Simulated scan of single mutants.
Amino acid sequence: MDDDAIEVRGLTKRFGHRVAVEDLSFVVPRGSIVGLLGPNGAGKSTTLRAIVGLLAPTSGECLIDGTALSALDNPAAHVGVHMDGFGFEAGISARRHLEISRLAAGAPRARVDEVLEEVGLTADARRRVKTFSTGMVQRLGLAAALVGSPHTLILDEPANGLDPDGIRWLRRFLGGFAERGGTVLVSSHQLAELEQVVDEVVIIKQRALFAGRLGDLVTSDVDSLESRYFDLVEGASA
């Protein structure tokens, strides 16, 4: 197995005459947390959907563990995904949702209780999803992503709806996942929060504006991820 959990190679996606992503390339090293950043409409969701096989690239390719997701024998053991648009059946309980996810992933029955504990939803397992707060729905989505015991997580705005305690919990969770050898690709607008947890960043606006280690982007005490981000994004608009 090579050193990169995810590879995006020359990804281009067009919708008619509109270019969503153009010639985008980056890697997500194994055991790292990588932030995928960009303004609204920059192509972040398109990129994530191409990586997990929900969109076919116009050109280029996306690989997970060196292989297209569609060619993996047991995709849920390689990658867990939580993205906007992955809905929940509001009338069922959190436990039932995870039972369905477990069956789809081919995971053992005990895994449901394990992931409920991991995300702090054990006490709410029998509640209907329609009674959940936005933050609880985010935790349930993360639990579903974890149910196959994947090595890699792909998360789209996982901090949306979380209160400050929830955001701190998410930061610690992601850090612990990486410390145990896991890999995370996370899209977020929470730049100050992301700066505390990521090893690398990929900043895009249809094309890659920067892809590399956070320390190579934020190089002084007066810099921040937020300031460097706006330098790049506003510079690309000029």
Results as ranks from 00 to 15, higher is better:
T46E: 06
T46H: 04
T47K: 12
L48V: 11
L48Y: 05
R49N: 04
R49P: 10
A50N: 05
V52G: 05
G53E: 12
L54D: 03
L55K: 11
L55A: 13
L55R: 12
L55Y: 06
A56S: 12
A56L: 14
A56Y: 03
P57R: 03
T58G: 15
E61K: 15
E61Q: 15
L63N: 04
L63P: 01
L63E: 00
L63M: 04
I64V: 08
D65H: 13
D65K: 14
G66T: 08
T67I: 01
T67F: 05
T67V: 07
T67E: 04
T67N: 09
A68V: 02
A68L: 04
L69T: 05
L69K: 08
L69S: 05
S70G: 14
A71W: 12
L72S: 15
D73P: 09
D73R: 15
D73C: 08
D73N: 06
N74K: 12
P75M: 05
P75S: 11
H78K: 10
H78G: 04
H78S: 13
G80D: 03
G80M: 07
H82G: 12
M83E: 11
D84M: 06
D84T: 08
D84H: 07
D84V: 08
D84G: 13
G85E: 06
F86I: 10
F86E: 02
F86L: 11
F86Q: 11
F86V: 10
G87F: 12
E89N: 13
A90Y: 08
G91P: 09
G91N: 07
I92V: 15
S93I: 07
A94M: 01
A94G: 07
R95I: 12
E99H: 08
E99N: 11
I100M: 10
I100F: 15
I100H: 06
I100K: 07
I100R: 13
R102P: 00
L103C: 09
A104C: 11
A104D: 03
A104S: 13
A104Q: 03
A105I: 01
G106L: 02
A107T: 02
P108A: 07
R109I: 00
R109D: 00
A110Q: 07
R111K: 13
V112N: 04
D113T: 09
E114T: 08
V115E: 01
V115D: 00
L116H: 05
L116E: 02
E117A: 14
V119N: 02
G120H: 09
L121H: 13
A123W: 05
D124R: 10
D124L: 14
D124V: 09
A125M: 10
R126M: 11
R126N: 14
R127A: 11
R127Q: 10
R128F: 01
R128K: 12
V129S: 08
V129E: 00
V129Q: 11
V129I: 13
K130C: 15
T131Y: 05
